[in-house]
Amino acid sequence: MLKHRMIKFILSRMVAPILYLVAFGWGLGRSINTGSGSYLDFLVPGILALNSMNIAFNSLSPLHGERVYHKSIEEYFTAPINPLSFVIGKILAAILRGMISSAIIIVLAYLFGANFMITPLFLLVLILNCAIFAEIGFYAAMTIDSYEDMGRFNTYILMPMSFLCGTFFSPDKLPKLFYYFIHALPLTHTSLLLREIGRGAPPELLSVLVLLLYTAVCFWLCARVTKKAQQ
């Protein structure tokens, strides 16, 4: 039953990224000149980044209902388990979903004829991206009170990020102030890293550090909010 649901969940969330891949990469992209390589090759890392962000974040949105409406979260909070294992379990499940859907995108991208390399660091970056947005999803689900606000988080924060954070175009061309703002966001570093690693260029280690920092800080926030929820 759970597996069935997981597949349905992943597929429904992947319609948009796959359409981006088809429309902008395979369709429109063939006539775009990026200077180095095809636009499809440029786009695939961006799609992987935004897709894993969306899947990981939204894997945690049911937690909101579990906390506010069904209250099934009480089952966990009255059980003799470490609150941290609750946080870790939820985040690992979201990472798993994010990685399964990434695998689907990777296969499709190769079928469309994209060229990119997958190294262990490439996978690590994807995993960190899933972890960060799973944690942000967790934190949102534990603190936001209404279902509508959960939806607004998607529309006003995730949606703009999925277009602006180095996913569809290079952030180098942005105005200075905006450039710095975009570089404070984790998704930008994921896109840039995946693109560099994918085309065999040396990765920017500072970006890896930024992702690690985000992962750690967000985890700490999740742990804190979980402990507080049990008071």
């Binding site: 039953m1 649901r5 049911p62 069904h70 099934s72 089952e75």
Partner: peptide, 8 residues
């Protein structure tokens, strides 16, 4: 309040 996991 009935608090089962509705998906199970």
């Amino acid at each position: 309040h009935i608090n089962f996991d509705q998906d199970l």
